[in-house]
Nucleic acid binder design. Structure first.
Length: 277
DNA sequence: AATCATATCAACCGCATCGGG
DNA sequence: CCCCGATGCGGTTGATATGAT
């Protein structure tokens, strides 16, 4: 903290010497909340200047969006939220702000942190790239079905489709994504976004009628390559091939299917246990 | 109790995009 | 068109918390 202030007071940057950086104080928070309540959450540079806060507009905006905004949610990521993150990331990649639209109260920063600290860590343990088909297939065929099992255990009886419809808060509007959004066409085909219900409703021709096998359903929905004995480790066809999900070739470190799947299961347990502590 | 390693997350930075002049 | 300021996004950093030894 002090380092930030020392740096910002460097004589070499006299013009920047008034700009505060680093953690926000309670006083600063109070000032910002007060100003936003009066002037609204726009024109951040104006807010930064006229509030007397020695912060940049960007810093004010970030503080408000990620921390001070009244509807921001804190605490453990729920199972439904984990499922949503995995599913939407499989469709859109690192489009954190877009994914955050479907997790009311969660910020893009929080989702990004979750992905980096939890999901990427597991990829690291598996010694595979988080963008590799191997890892995508693992998420799709092991972790996501496991999440569904856990959700079912929490709230008895929902089908896989119902779990999907649980993953968004019905009270929150869902922005209609741009028609040219890469990947959205497929998403929209598979999950009709009903504005009235404000839920994901899987299309009947894809999964709604045969949800007994989550793995199969996910496979169908997302077009992944799955076979009885495992996966296609060098396949290029998983998840629709969106260009921001470029496959990292040659990263399959596993040659022993049995030990691989054993480890998958272990890691899955570890990963899905986070929200139960 | 002390030290080290690892995990978490708030906040920064650079870049892209958008809109007004 | 071009420029410029504002805004938003994704990647990254670094301080702090927590756990392990």
């Amino acid at each position: 903290m002090e380092d930030y202030e020392r740096n910002s007071n460097s004589p070499a940057h006299e013009e920047d010497s008034d700009v505060r950086k680093g953690p926000w104080t309670e006083d600063e928070d109070a000032i910002l909340v007060n100003f936003v309540s009066i002037h609204g959450d726009a024109r951040w540079n104006h807010i930064a200047r006229s509030s007397g806060l020695k912060r940049t507009g960007k810093s004010c905006r970030l503080r408000w969006l990620n921390y001070l905004r009244p509807d921001v949610r804190r605490g453990n990521i729920t199972l439904e939220e984990q499922f949503t993150i995995l599913k939407l990331h499989s469709l859109w990649g690192n489009r954190w702000s877009k994914i955050a639209q479907y997790l009311p109260g969660r910020t893009d920063n929080e989702i990004k942190n979750y992905w980096r600290t939890r999901v990427q860590k597991q990829a690291k343990h598996l010694r595979c790239d988080v963008n590799s088909n191997l890892f995508k297939e693992t998420m799709k065929n092991v972790w996501m079905p496991r999440l569904v099992e856990r959700i079912n255990a929490q709230t008895p009886s929902p089908t896989y489709d119902q779990v999907e419809s649980m993953v968004t808060d019905p009270s929150q509007p869902i922005d209609e994504p741009s028609p040219v959004e890469p990947g959205f066409d497929q998403f929209n085909q598979n999950h009709h976004c009903h504005q009235q219900q404000q839920q994901f409703v899987p299309a009947s021709d894809v999964s709604a009628t045969s949800s007994n096998s989550p793995a199969e359903t996910l496979s169908d929905v997302q077009g992944g390559v799955v076979n009885g004995s495992g996966y296609d480790p060098v396949g290029q066809t998983g998840f629709g091939g969106f260009n921001d999900w470029g496959c990292v070739g040659g990263d399959n470190m596993w040659t022993d299917d049995e030990s691989f799947w054993f480890l998958q299961d272990q890691l899955c347990n570890e990963m899905t246990s986070y929200s139960y502590n």
